[in-house]
Simulated scan of single mutants.
Amino acid sequence: MQVHQLGDGVPEVAVVAGIHGDEPCGPRAVGRLLAAAPDVVRPVKLIVANEEALEAGVRYTEEDLNRAFPGDPNGDTHEAQLAHHLMSELEGCTVLALHSTQSTAEPFAVAETVDEIARAVVPHLSVTKLLETEELAEGRLIQHPHTIEVECGLQGSDEAAENGYRLVREFLAATGSLPTASPAALSPERAADGAFDGGANAASDGGTPAGTDAESAIEVFKLIDPVPKPPAGEYEVFVENFSAVRAGERFAAADGEEFTADTSFYPALMSPYGYADLFGYAANRVGVLDERRA
């Protein structure tokens, strides 16, 4: 595990990349930020987690790291021990975790639930959708308090790496670590006025404008069930993620056998080969972000 820091002091903000070794967008974004070495208002911890899996170009070496949290220092697998050490590094931090997917090129945010951190950070990110995981988050880093995940785009693509870099800067601006999401000038004094003040300029770097208008533009979906797939040699998915599937509509196939929806749902993280034993997940659309207040 690589651990880097921008700025002096004890970081309360962290970015995690490389949880999965076949998702290079996050490590590329972190490397680009380290090379840029921006002046930060608050110190930031930058972590590249599963170096062994990244080197091998595989999702994990022994166990899916994003199903292994909170981990075990004496665990039987590399990832079980790594999960424990990563949790220790993240103690006391607000966290952005970078991922990529085979399901959609459009970036979106993921949170265990719409809490104060999601409401404060997500409007400053260049996303239009937020996915709640709740009880389906078992073993995932997203259960760590004050953690937001972003799916940056299609796995292995240059666009996902570019999106990841932009989203990192937007997150750091939203948390007051950068004065603005772009290199454009904004005084550190103004950013220091409030933890999330700097994110107001996220739109200058392609971000979503802050405030109620941004919140009303972000659709919120909630996972309800995994969608299993049977053993087969060839899989197909016929639907678009986050677009409604009606009861009776076909949504996927395995070796030519088609599957139709028993009830209407919204597909999320659904793709032919993204998961070994799932097509993805069924979700409900539950509103927009400014309606999901505690």
Score class of each variant (00 low, 15 high):
residue 8 D to F: 08
residue 120 A to L: 15
residue 45 K to P: 05
residue 143 Q to F: 05
residue 125 L to E: 08
residue 282 A to D: 02
residue 150 V to K: 04
residue 22 D to K: 11
residue 291 E to L: 11
residue 273 Y to F: 10
residue 220 V to R: 03
residue 245 V to Q: 07
residue 241 N to T: 09
residue 13 V to Y: 10
residue 2 Q to M: 01
residue 18 G to Q: 05
residue 14 A to P: 03
residue 150 V to L: 00
residue 170 E to D: 14
residue 157 S to Q: 10
residue 36 A to K: 12
residue 168 V to A: 04
residue 234 E to I: 11
residue 259 F to T: 08
residue 85 H to W: 08
residue 274 G to V: 03
residue 151 E to Y: 06
residue 192 A to T: 02
residue 235 Y to C: 13
residue 197 D to I: 07
residue 230 P to I: 08
residue 91 E to L: 07
residue 72 D to E: 10
residue 59 R to V: 03
residue 98 L to H: 11
residue 30 V to M: 01
residue 42 R to Q: 14
residue 179 P to T: 12
residue 179 P to A: 14
residue 14 A to R: 01
residue 238 F to E: 08
residue 175 T to V: 00
residue 124 H to P: 00
residue 38 P to W: 11
residue 216 S to W: 08
residue 247 A to L: 11
residue 155 Q to D: 06
residue 267 P to V: 04
residue 293 R to N: 15
residue 209 P to G: 02
residue 9 G to A: 01
residue 173 A to I: 03
residue 142 I to R: 14
residue 160 A to G: 06
residue 220 V to Q: 06
residue 231 P to R: 05
residue 255 D to S: 14
residue 261 A to I: 12
residue 293 R to H: 15
residue 132 E to Y: 02
residue 43 P to H: 08
residue 149 E to W: 07
residue 261 A to E: 12
residue 104 T to F: 13
residue 105 A to L: 09
residue 117 I to W: 14
residue 135 E to P: 07
residue 266 Y to G: 03
residue 87 M to P: 08
residue 285 R to V: 02
residue 82 L to N: 03
residue 285 R to M: 07
residue 31 G to M: 02
residue 163 N to E: 03
residue 247 A to E: 12
residue 42 R to H: 13
residue 90 L to W: 11
residue 135 E to A: 09
residue 204 S to C: 11
residue 221 F to D: 01
residue 111 A to G: 09
residue 135 E to S: 12
residue 214 A to H: 03
residue 151 E to T: 01
residue 191 A to H: 06
residue 97 A to S: 12
residue 223 L to F: 02
residue 292 R to N: 04
residue 266 Y to N: 06
residue 44 V to C: 10
residue 276 A to L: 10
residue 241 N to V: 04
residue 237 V to I: 13
residue 248 G to M: 13
residue 247 A to D: 09
residue 276 A to F: 09
residue 86 L to N: 05
residue 190 R to M: 01
residue 293 R to A: 15
residue 253 A to W: 14
residue 118 A to T: 14
residue 18 G to M: 00
residue 141 L to V: 12
residue 292 R to F: 00
residue 57 G to S: 00
residue 270 M to I: 09
residue 19 I to C: 06
residue 268 A to E: 11
residue 125 L to T: 03
residue 144 H to E: 06
residue 202 A to Y: 02
residue 140 R to K: 13
residue 67 R to Q: 09
residue 228 P to I: 11
